[in-house]
């Protein structure tokens, strides 16, 4: 086989590039804690046709035993519950864990202007944790086509300073 020396050099550079990209991704994944949802993130599965017997029957913000907040949310044709109609209020600078599922079709959950982005699949629970460092309003949108009124599926998160977060609206365990 006849490979020109320039081409050998280029193949070397290409392999370096690939190794560099893989390293950067792994660095972000391990050191910077930038991760993605997945089945080993503790979400698990749920019977989408029988959500009445699960915490998803009363979607909203809860406080866990170790003092963190978690949000049970339904993404459904064509709203987020909670989040649409009335905004979802969350504290800044605090760990918040989302558990999102869908009772009907596949949806997307994206918080505009952030890296919070997950598929929402009936039968699967998307579980992921984040921290909002800055108070303010954040738009939620469905980024997976879910039917004729898909473009109206939106909501709002209101992030308030931790001292102003009102715990009286939490869902009882």
């Amino acid at each position: 086989m006849h490979i020109h020396r320039f081409e050998k050099l280029w193949i070397g550079l290409s392999l370096f590039l690939i190794a560099a990209f893989i390293s950067i991704v792994m660095y972000g994944f391990t050191v910077l804690d930038l991760t993605v949802p997945g089945s080993d993130r503790g979400g698990g599965t749920v019977d989408a046709m029988n959500l009445a017997e699960t915490p998803f029957a009363t979607p909203g913000v809860r406080k866990t035993e170790d003092g963190e907040y978690e949000v049970y949310m339904l993404a459904r044709q064509y709203f987020f519950q909670p989040g649409s109609g009335q905004s979802l209020t969350l504290p800044a600078e605090t760990r918040v864990t989302f558990k999102v599922t869908s009772p009907d079709v596949i949806h997307g959950f994206q918080v505009a202007g952030t890296n919070i982005n997950s598929m929402v699949i009936p039968g699967q629970i998307s579980r992921f944790t984040t921290v909002f460092s800055d108070p303010g309003e954040y738009g939620i949108l469905c980024n997976e086509y879910c039917g004729a009124a898909h473009h109206t599926m939106e909501g709002l998160i209101e992030v308030v300073p931790p001292s102003e977060f009102d715990e009286s609206n939490l869902i009882e365990q």
């Binding site: 910077l32 930038l34 949802p37 202007g113 952030t114 919070i116 984040t130 921290v131 460092s133």
Partner: peptide, 11 residues
């Protein structure tokens, strides 16, 4: 663009 953004999925 990415790592410099506000909120990310951290776990």
């Amino acid at each position: 663009e990415f790592a410099g953004r506000g909120a990310s999925i951290i776990e």
